[in-house]
Computed example of a mutant assay.
Amino acid sequence: MRTPAREQPRRGDAASPATRVLAVALLLCIASALLSAVAGGLLRAGVPLARAGAPDWLGQAALQHAALMICAFMGTVIAVERAVAVKLALAWLAPAASALAGPALLLGQPALGGALLVLSGAAFVAVNVVVVQRQSEPHTWLLLASAAAWLAGNALFAAGFAPAAVVPWWFAFLVMTIAAERLEMTRLMRRRRGALPALVGLLALLAAASAWSAFDPVIGGLLYGAALLGLAVWLLAFDIARRTLFTQGLSRYMAVCLLGGYGWLAVGGLAWAATALGAPARDTALHALGLGFVFSMMMGHAPVILPAVARVKLLFGWPFYLPLALLHGSLLMRLGLRAVDAGWLPRGAELNAAAIALFALTAIGAVLAWNRKDALQARRPRASRRSESSRPG
């Protein structure tokens, strides 16, 4: 659920020293989870990061790549957004626990990391129950369902189940969250009568396929891929991005991110089904979904979400298109050209990482640009007042 961008801190609302320390600690955990997940992903793709005497955490980063990226990073970010929205102190238990799971996993303590993720998932479900109690709408119920999917995946991970049983639940958490966000954004649009039941049915199929994958990976994988493909078609047909693509500025940028992501969601669904049938498409399934779809959504929503959650303002401009283009271009190289030359897998992975880094730098630059613009505007009235006072009476 998006936090309204208009909720800005009032002057004089200074955070306590303890609050600032906790905020910095949380931010460091989120950053370390992202960096270690990216490093682990590069190692898994064959990029030679590790040398003789490499630190143990690099090996753990490769081993726990999915848990670090989906839970310790993305899960924490989503939980922070929800905690800001509900304005309850206990809501911060969810992001705190998932953030601490990252260092635990990197230190080779999967039992502790799994327990923290279960605690985080349970707390996150409770937070979303509060959200539903405050606003009982289809999108809030879908957010609650996404939280339950995360808890299910975390519980299976803590119990030591194989990735084939865990990862579908984790991706279902992200996909359901995004679908709920888009449903909220388009709730005032006129849709066909069967649109909402179709969306609920597709997400129910996704959850059922996640559960089925633990017992029958073939049938579960086919149903999972079908649900993803169906959701891509639904979003392309009913999302407001089809209209905002023809606007200007931030609205057009968000539409480009969304529509490109929906295309990758369809590719991920097809590849997921193909993998279930024995085709060598696992990397395509995971990264078309995780990078092409999820990161495109994050890039599109970040200029709106960051001001509300981090209490900063960004100056949007054309540079935001650069990391987006690099992300999609590098994915095409990684997933499309590897069939011709296996060397494109590590090259594409390196450019995937570069796209994420470039987006982070672009967002930081946008914050600095806004602050500079704001400072210049603040000086101009004082300069005009001085020039007016110097004029002869």
Score class of each variant (00 low, 15 high):
Ala50Tyr: 01
Leu43Gly: 13
Ala339Glu: 10
Cys29Ser: 08
Trp318Leu: 13
Pro4Ile: 09
Leu43Phe: 03
Arg51Gly: 14
Arg386Lys: 11
Ala5Pro: 11
Pro163Gly: 02
Gly113Tyr: 04
Thr3Trp: 05
Ser387Ile: 07
Leu88Glu: 15
Thr275Lys: 00
Leu335Ala: 04
Ile78Met: 12
Trp92Gly: 10
Ala363Tyr: 01
Leu258Ile: 10
Leu119Tyr: 02
Pro381Ala: 10
Asp13Ser: 13
Ala14Gly: 13
Gly194Asn: 09
Ser296Val: 07
Arg391Thr: 06
Leu258Gln: 15
Arg6Ile: 13
Ala274Trp: 09
Val77Arg: 01
Gly12Lys: 08
Leu22Val: 15
Leu306Gly: 01
Arg44Asn: 13
Tyr262Trp: 02
Gly114Asn: 00
Gly102Asp: 07
Pro17Ala: 07
Arg82Glu: 12
Met74Phe: 12
Arg386Cys: 05
Thr19Gly: 15
Thr247Phe: 14
Leu117Phe: 06
Gly113Pro: 06
Pro9Ile: 07
Ala122Ser: 14
His328Ser: 00
Leu63Ala: 15
Arg82Ser: 13
Pro197Trp: 01
Thr247Tyr: 13
Arg134Trp: 10
Ile70Lys: 02
Leu43Lys: 06
Phe124Pro: 07
Met333Arg: 12
Glu81Phe: 07
Ala172Val: 12
Gly201Arg: 02
Phe157Met: 09
Ala15Pro: 14
Pro95Gly: 10
Arg311Thr: 09
Phe316Tyr: 12
Val233Asp: 08
Ala14Arg: 14
Val167Ala: 03
Leu250Arg: 14
Gly261Glu: 10
Val130Thr: 08
Ser136Arg: 11
Arg192Phe: 08
Gly102Pro: 09
Pro307Ala: 05
